[in-house]
Design a protein around this nucleic acid. Sequence first.
RNA 1: GGCGCGGUGGCGGAGUGGCUACGCAGCGGCCUGCAAAGCCGUGGACACCGGUUCGAAUCCGGUCCGCGCCUCCA
Length: 445
Amino acid sequence: MSLFIHNTLSRTKEVFAPLDTDHVRMYVCGPTVYDYAHIGNARPVVVFDVLSRLLRRLYPKLTYVRNITDVDDKINEASRLSGENIRSITERTAKAFHDDMLALGALPPDVEPRATDHIDQMIIMIETLIADGNAYEADGHVLFSVPSMAQYGQLARHSRDELIAGARVDVAPYKKDPCDFVLWKPSDADLPGWDSPWGRGRPGWHIECSAMAKVYLGETFDIHGGGQDLIFPHHENEMAQSRCANHSDIMAKYWMHNGYLMSEGEKMSKSLGNFYTVHDLLDEFPGQAIRLALLQTHYRQPQDFTKNSISEARRTLDKWYRIIGDGQNSHEDIPSGIIDALCDDLNTPKAIAELHKLAAQGQGGALKAGASIMGLMFQSAEDWAAWQPAASGALDAGVIDGLIVERTEARQNRDFDRSDEIRDELNAQGIVLEDGPDGTTWKYA
RNA sequence: GGCGCGGUGGCGGAGUGGCUACGCAGCGGCCUGCAAAGCCGUGGACACCGGUUCGAAUCCGGUCCGCGCCUCCA
């Protein structure tokens, strides 16, 4: 079974043929660390986590690189507003990002380089671009010369003329061409800066990824991924820099982009305050339920993300965990239907439908195996059942168990008024009782 | 304005030129003190208008609606 993936370069599904079948290499743009990751940031992390699991199964070796952007004007602004120093912001936010993504079941990438550790490589790359006539210094800035690259616009399918026609902002006076973009810019004394041949300054947004991809994956590699919003300008510019600096026809062979997320039917926006941070959602829902909710839509489709969809995913997982029960890690093969679905451009909704079929047939082992390649069902049924919302905890388990005993006695005496009263009381506190053949169990609603 | 993406049953969400997934919810039944869970059964869709075709929700054109991007810059 071949893996097919949608390549943004061609806008079609293509057979995946790695440059080196012994070693697949993938780069995904990671977070700029100045604030908690919202659910829109989590989508590419989860999507490419599934892809990485699939690639590791299909090929002997994968190197998965996802950067951390820790130099950026948004970070500088956050520091200016809060007074917290930049290093503290980036360390704290990166840590929160790691915790949140782990809770979503995303494995760490093989390499997680930080921009500030690779300033030297960026400077070297910029020097090469200047030497070759692909970049120039002007007014303390270094700019990439877009007209120097004939194929600029290939990824986003924007011609240079179209870009100029559509421009909504004034062009900086030091630019030779309106489309030229910044590789290096000067920093004044209170901004982060590094010494360079062009004075003390800091890198532009795109050059870090070009430099780090080259260090860890080489001049060309297989897959470059990220959110759709990165196609232009970020990936277009990255590709232009890398190809010119490396004198190469390609940067990545396949470019993959996940679609946008809406929130409760509206586009996410800070002014509306309608975006969910992963951090907050994890107080309310188990991470796996959030992950399943994200995977319920194909990664290239737009998705309207709702709390209701997480609740639904959670009930689905409840059911699946019941089917698996205590059945330990049966080392069953991953069912072929699951692999086939994922090999068709990561069709996770179809793979999930396969899981439902396995569940309906009561095939717990196959269900668990199939879920595992999507990073689901990684907990024991016991741990899953033990999850509780952050706001809970008014009642301790001993009190609940005591009430269950009292209720069981009431039921044996056919005192159903008292029995229902106890259940209603617990229900009001978010505790759900379920009478089964082996007695009464409880869980958080 | 330019470029691009999408509109599938009450909701979520795949897919295919003809055999019309899947989940949730609904409805009927079994089970249950009652719930829950489970089990069995069941109705319901392809934005609109044309065209191509023996046949289109699936291909083509148009319309409407939703969404994104248009560069370090506010």
